[in-house]
């Protein structure tokens, strides 16, 4: 038995019915591991890394504020910003982070705007972390 994972963003299908043995995702309340046979489950995702494990491969995805549904061993992950960890552009992430930081510091922001920027800052921060890890010696796609 295995899980079938589909990850969809507004721009594309990141993976379609990928077969894995185990999936770990960052729900807003903490990390959740899904194994085959899981009960139907709905959760909001925070900022973090989705890890999929199968016998010969581990694939990591960066997610910020998504959503996941588990039903009949089908995992559906929806998010506006999900990308494979191996495809993160470190330079771009750093630039984006700097931009957000500047906005937080130099602008007079409303409460909601401020919260939104904080969320984005957190997301960019995580992106940079993940990018640095996957460039480093312990490459994410190792078998």
């Amino acid at each position: 038995m295995s899980l079938s994972v589909t990850i969809v963003t507004p721009h594309r299908k990141v993976v379609h019915k990928l077969s894995v043995d185990e999936l770990i995702m960052p729900s807003e309340a903490g990390e959740v591991t899904i194994l085959p046979g899981h009960t139907p489950f709905l959760t909001a995702l925070g900022v973090g890394v989705i890890r999929t494990l199968s016998q010969d491969e581990r694939i990591h995805f960066l997610v910020s504020y998504g959503f996941a549904e588990v039903r009949d061993d089908q995992v559906l992950i929806l998010g506006e910003d999900i990308e494979p960890a191996s495809q993160i552009d470190l330079e771009r992430a750093q630039k984006a982070k700097a931009e957000v930081e500047e906005k937080i510091l130099n602008k007079v922001l409303g409460e909601i705007e401020y919260a939104n920027y904080l969320k984005r800052l957190q997301a960019e921060q995580k992106r940079i972390e993940v990018a640095k890890q996957s460039i480093g010696p312990s490459s994410k796609k190792k078998k």
Binding site: A29, V32, P40, T43, A44, Y65, F67, E80
Partner: peptide, 22 residues
């Protein structure tokens, strides 16, 4: 379907609706 919600149904909805509108 009897879903398990985490953290709660309300919060899942709160996460989903803005995405839907966007």
């Amino acid at each position: 379907i009897d879903y398990l919600y985490e953290p709660s149904r309300e919060e899942v909805l709160t996460a989903l609706l803005p995405k839907h509108i966007r």
